[in-house]
Design a protein around this nucleic acid. Structure first.
Lengths: 340, 340
DNA sequence: TCTGGCACTCCGTCCGTGCGAGTGCCAGCG
DNA sequence: CGCTGGCACTCGCACGGACGGAGTGCCAGA
């Protein structure tokens, strides 16, 4: 029906106007700014229907209409296409990410880039350990009975962990242990590491067993530990600019961003197909984010997703542009990580 | 003079009341809440003098008085003693920092602890590389002509850096290089590392020279690079609670905290004597912090300061308590780092 | 030198008004 | 049957004046 079609166009127009002006949009303004080919009165009727269906709402009687979460959802799903980035933006991405010195650096630059491109809070997850492989394991003795285990993954991530040994450790044993660990785990997926520990224990020379046990335990713990997934957050200053957008104060949002665990769950639940995921307002379950939207996507080299990245902002955001930025940045990051 | 003395007591009372109530304080309220032994009228005269001298000011004619930066300065310098922490707080600190697994973990816990104790934004600097010694250098080959240099310091800090080599690298050379580096630099102060590179270049076997040069350059760069000093920031959510305190918006402050470099300079300029440093409002030079105060102190094991930590908050803060918290946390962190 | 009293200054709040934007409904028209 | 123009109605908001209260400065007296 031409009917429904126009109604959707009206919804699209409402979302676009509201996002760009931040004012509830009325029928008259809509008719003026968009070539809908009908009069304000007709638009009013359509808006009444859209409101009935729950796509828009009016903040107060006799104010303009504002999209609801459901309205944004429909907009994202059916009324918008991801807007391609400008050439300048693409070049900016390249320039920004080139010349990164290590993983830290790559992710820090990424988060700043993303915050700058989208004017939102940007979030980048470190490559998940459980999907990484061991490139090298280093054991350094820091005290007579204390070792520092350093894990270097194929994604360039470096993790450290202190190990308290039951007894004093001999210098030569450390070297032996190092060699043993690297032949056992070198190149192996970290996810498989846990299952290899018992084997290694059996085959290890007796005088190293207790050490191997301690190191193995530490390795497994590192994987399980909630802190294993790190998060880089940037652009929180962008929140201040749009402070009015959020009900009450920024506080809960800032807390959630610091808490990390909540945001982490959202960011790491990426679509395996590589599509950009959008979660709008209440869809976020967690209360602190109920007034916010999250746009996220997995990044990685080849098919496997190493981690997620994305942005957090008010539900009233420019979805097409932001989705494009998130996707583009994720691609570049994937490329760069593949190279190193 | 009994005169001046009372005036200072009035100033102290004003600061205390203003900090706790957040309302400009008037002569009457002051007389009621503090045993100054004089009438409001007398206090008014004193306040007029204090205002003349620039210690207090009135936001509007016929509102109460509010301390100026200069007033807070006098308060901190002469009118307050660092308030000892409660037993519960001391125990909380111990409990909170115990069981940290590595340097990351220690610093992350520290920043959260400090934010929680003071209800301000907490900032902790990683132990400065230039004051650390090399515990171990690790070289890992990540591609035929690409090495990953991992530096482990005596403070437990682990730094990584990618090195592009001019030519493909032989596996055995890597092992040799590693041994060479560790005998040359092991245990040495990083600050001295730069001066050792030329020597090492001379004595190194010819086939390793180009590698040593590349690694040496990377090492020196790591020290010089602005990013060498890392910062952990936490408790930004506390800013939202006191958003009204800051002129305009939180934006500049949040930006400065993300920028890191500004805050870093403030935090790292610690008193060598181990005293808590307070910078109030305009004393902070940088514009974004002109409405904020910074309370900082160096932490470290023994005498040398490894780095700084502190808090950033509105000038209207509880200085005695916060100074106590900062000092106590710094001590514990120093202890813990000395142990590992 | 301190105190009580007094006049004065303003800020913040409240209330009433007017304006403007936007709506819903209805009758008429193609 | 759907679109249009017109119209009355509803609110939110900005403006402006009045009011009360808190706090001050000053002055005369103890």
């Amino acid at each position: 029906m031409a009917h429904d079609d126009r109604r959707l166009q009206v919804l699209r127009a409402i979302v676009q106007d509201y996002v760009s002006t931040n004012d509830p949009v009325g029928s008259k303004a809509l008719a003026e700014r968009h070539d809908l080919g009908v009069s304000p009165a007709t638009i009013r009727n359509d808006m009444a229907v859209l409101e009935e269906l729950g796509y828009i709402t009016q903040p107060h009687t006799s104010a303009g209409r504002v999209p609801t979460d459901k309205g944004y959802r429909l907009f994202v799903d059916r009324l918008s296409a991801i807007k391609p980035l400008s050439v300048a933006e693409r070049r900016a991405i390249e320039r920004f990410l080139d010349g990164a010195l290590d993983l830290h650096d790559v992710l820090n630059r990424t988060v700043r880039l993303l915050a700058q491109l989208t004017h939102q809070v940007a979030v980048v997850q470190y490559p998940t350990l459980s999907r990484s492989a061991v490139r090298h394991l280093e054991v350094v003795q820091v005290a007579s009975s204390r070792l520092l285990l350093v894990l270097i993954t194929d994604t360039g991530r470096v993790e450290q962990r202190l190990i308290d040994c039951p007894v004093d450790v001999d210098r030569d044993d450390v070297a032996e242990l190092r060699a043993l660990l690297n032949t056992a785990f070198g190149g192996a997926q970290l996810a498989d590491a846990a299952s290899k520990v018992p084997d290694l224990l059996d085959t290890a020379p007796p005088h190293l067993r207790s050490l191997v046990a301690a190191v193995g335990a530490a390795l497994v713990e590192t994987l399980v530990e909630p802190g294993e997934d790190r998060l880089v957050v940037g652009g929180t200053a962008n929140l201040a600019r749009e402070a009015m957008q959020f009900p009450g104060s920024l506080r809960p949002l800032l807390e959630a961003l610091e808490e990390q665990v909540v945001v982490l769950r959202l960011i790491s639940e990426v679509d395996t197909g590589g599509a950009v995921l959008v979660r709008i307002g209440e869809e976020n379950a967690h209360e602190a984010l109920s007034g916010a939207s999250v746009v996220s996507v997995g990044y990685g080299s080849g098919e496997r997703a190493l981690g997620g990245l994305g942005i957090v902002g008010p539900t009233r955001m420019d979805y097409p542009t932001n989705m494009a930025a998130v996707r583009a940045v994720a691609r570049y990051v994937g490329q760069i990580l593949a190279e190193s």
